[in-house]
Write a protein that binds this DNA or RNA. Structure first.
Lengths: 217, 217
DNA sequence: TCTTATTATTAGGTATGCCTAAAATGGGAG
DNA sequence: CTCCCATTTTAGGCATACCTAATAATAAGA
């Protein structure tokens, strides 16, 4: 079984691969909060184990095997988030951090029990898709609220899960999954916007708007 | 925060202290499945940290601080077992092993949420008392079924949680918490006994009988 | 009491995963 | 096309918690 650290590396590499395409030593160093030297070392080991391929000074890419391991962890993470939110009534902004620890020690039996109790959910409380047991993840397209046209009526597909403070603020102004948002006015100078949420007008910064992924309602 | 290993040492020392009184290096070595040499080393560290006192070649004893740490872990373990059993519908014999991993990463917030969801239980699914948040554990006296008199009607107070196979067998013959057992006949040659459980007569070995703690019904 | 057997401790070594400091690489500016 | 600098890798160390082998202390029997 892969150690907790190894699982974190694989998960992070998977995320960076989806978000940015290329995965560099320094990007891993930043997101995992370890020195580049440590990343180099670990990457070498993961390459030896067959979880990824590494071209020195170029970057890394998960093998099929490594990707499956990553997706298994992501599944556990998201199922656990769902459980914390729906069953234990944790706040939306708290679940990510809790799940970071539990994903590593969750047995496959536990994963199955939770999946069952939750009724086999397909998205987590932030709107992210939950991969299947065998590593298939269906990603629903969408666009950043920043990129929605003025006057458009959008529905919230998913929200950034990593920044608890931002998430807490979003919740406080009424942004939640599946909610309808109407883009009233876009300010070109700073990319902030005025939107209507639940009939109430709110000004939101570009940081917030960029963290909300929407689709046309 | 104490590491996972340290928590296991403290918990085990607490258990041995309650069961046997004296806690030797070799008893810890056996129950923790590490060599006596490793135990000596770790014990020295724990003594330095103030969790226990150590008299070389004699044994160890938890300090107040160490005992509190142990009881905090035991509380998490038992709450988690309760949760696995009642909410996730794990089998009685599976919960102990699962809880062994979770007890270490359960935050105090999680402990509180679970305690609340479960309705502040005072015993776990095996009948063991759950210590309070501040380390108070009320132990209910009882006797081994082996020691019950012939003809006596007893009620199951608690059962051994460590041996999954034994527990599974006990469940299969109908022994469960709070169940009534009538001692029909005691065989002196091997300490086995014939008992009535739920009206049905069953022969049980001394091993089984010794793992069942009962009180007079 | 003395000797042996049991129990416990110390000494020295391994693996993991982190670190800092030093060396190597390669892509972009001049 | 070369040189510089940011990125990356290697070298050498540290901490934790384990191990085996060797030594020391205690307990128990002759």
């Amino acid at each position: 079984m892969a150690s907790e650290q190894i699982e974190n590396y694989l998960k992070q590499i998977y995320n960076l691969q989806s978000d940015e395409g290329r995965v560099s030593t320094s990007s891993l160093s930043k997101t995992l909060d370890v020195t580049p030297a440590s990343v180099s070392e670990m990457v070498k080991k993961l390459a030896d184990e067959g979880s990824l391929t590494h071209t020195p000074y170029k970057g890394v890419a998960l093998t099929g095997e490594g990707e499956l391991l990553a997706l298994r962890i992501i599944r556990k993470h998201r199922l656990w988030e769902m459980f914390l939110f729906n069953v234990l009534h944790f706040k939306l902004e708290e679940i990510h951090r809790e799940a970071e620890r539990f994903e590593h020690i969750m047995s496959d039996t536990m994963e199955e029990k939770i999946d069952e109790v939750l009724g086999r959910p397909t998205i987590d409380p932030h709107g992210h898709p939950i991969p299947t047991r065998d590593g298939v993840m269906r990603h629903v397209a969408g666009l950043r609220l920043t990129d929605a046209a003025e006057g458009a009526t959008m529905r919230v597909l998913r929200v950034n899960d990593a920044d608890a403070e931002l998430l807490q603020y979003m919740t406080s102004i009424g942004i939640a999954l599946h909610m309808t948002i109407v883009v009233k006015q876009k300010m070109n100078f700073d990319n902030s916007m005025r939107v209507a949420i639940d009939g109430r007008d709110v000004n939101i910064s570009s940081t917030i708007a960029a963290s909300v992924i929407v689709e046309h309602a």
